[in-house]
């Protein structure tokens, strides 16, 4: 144990990886949870790929000398916000399917845009664009941590302040509006802050880890845990556990920590589905036991009586 602490103290890259693990777990808990609640799990990959288009734009503008100060990360953030805004616009009526379609369309549009720009970017810079999707949690620098940290903080504060509103928007957007809440503003706020966090997290730790950590733990918790707060907390724990195991494994085996973390996160969902199925089966057996023939008889009689009444009234 002391050995491990010694290693951590002596290796700044492990410290940064551990910090990033905590921050990614917070992002998953705050943002992934609500995306899954709203049926928008596709948004994580949509935003990450849209950011790719933005990064391509940034590299093009810098390289061509048109706008030298335009850092690729600015382009990535800009595009992720555009995706969130477009998705929000499509889903103003609160219909999930429309939002999924909007994510899909902006995904395709940004990727096409990225490929389009690749012809105007010198070939040796093209890997930079793809590099956007392949971050590694063990290769973070201080700037990555600061960027990721500030987004995480922003996301955490906003989610703490407005978690009730986010739940209301997810559950009953129309009813919330009718009662006088500015549901539309919270709807956009939630999507845009999530998109920013996803884009920066992708840059830092890579797309695969972000998809897996954003979606799978939230989906797993939502199958089993029966309160919003419980789900958020469970997501944090699952995500952190997967990442820490991933990092630890990468020292023992010759593997990428993201791969292990991604596999563990995905397995958590499969496990949750299985647990739920077993639990449901047990519930049914208990119900069957309670349904004695007497109960069934009364229910049957009532049903017949009601049908009879209905027949009169129609």
């Amino acid at each position: 144990m002391i050995d491990i602490i010694q290693i951590i103290i002596e290796s700044p890259f492990i410290q940064r990886a551990l910090l990033a693990s905590i921050m990614i777990a917070i992002i998953a808990a705050a943002s992934g949870t609500f995306l899954v609640f709203r049926g928008l799990s596709f948004m994580a990959s949509g935003v990450a790929h849209a950011a790719l288009g933005g990064a391509a734009l940034g590299i093009f503008l810098q390289d061509s000398g048109l706008v030298p100060w335009f850092d690729p990360i600015l382009g990535a953030l800009l595009f992720s916000i555009l995706v969130a805004a477009f998705t929000g616009y499509a889903g103003e009526s609160g219909i999930t399917q429309k939002m999924e379609v909007a994510v899909g369309v902006s995904f395709a549009l940004s990727m096409s845009f990225a490929v389009f720009l690749m012809y105007y970017i010198p070939p040796y810079k093209v890997p930079l664009i793809w590099g956007y999707l392949i971050g590694d949690i063990l290769l973070l620098n201080d700037l990555d941590i600061i960027m990721l940290g500030s987004t995480t903080l922003l996301l955490a504060v906003i989610t703490l302040m407005f978690n009730k509103e986010f739940v209301y928007v997810s559950v009953d957007m129309e009813g919330s509006t009718a009662h006088g809440m500015n549901a539309r503003a919270y709807h956009y706020l939630m999507l845009i802050v999530s998109a920013l966090a996803i884009a920066l997290a992708t840059k830092a730790v890579g797309a695969i880890l972000v998809y897996a950590i954003m979606v799978a733990p939230a989906a797993a918790s939502n199958e089993l845990v029966k309160s919003v707060r419980g789900v958020i907390f469970a997501v944090f724990l699952i995500a952190l556990f997967a990442e820490l195991v991933g990092i630890a494994a990468s020292f023992v085996l010759f593997v990428s920590p993201s791969a292990i973390a991604g596999i563990l996160a995905a397995l958590s969902y499969i496990l949750a589905l299985q647990i739920k199925r077993v639990r449901d089966r047990v519930d049914v057996e208990i119900d069957d036991f309670n349904l004695s023939p007497d109960d069934l008889n009364t229910t049957w009689n009532q049903a017949v009586a009601n049908e009879h009444e209905d027949g009169h009234e129609h």
């Binding site: 209301y168 997810s170 559950v171 009953d172 919003v228």
Partner: peptide
């Protein structure tokens, strides 16, 4: 106004409790 929308417009994937809905 207090509004009760059509039941189907309420999302069923969010694990809110009965008390949360009523307090809403």
């Amino acid at each position: 106004v207090r509004y009760v929308p059509q039941r189907d417009s309420i999302d069923h994937t969010v694990p809110v409790k009965v008390k949360d809905i009523v307090l809403m």
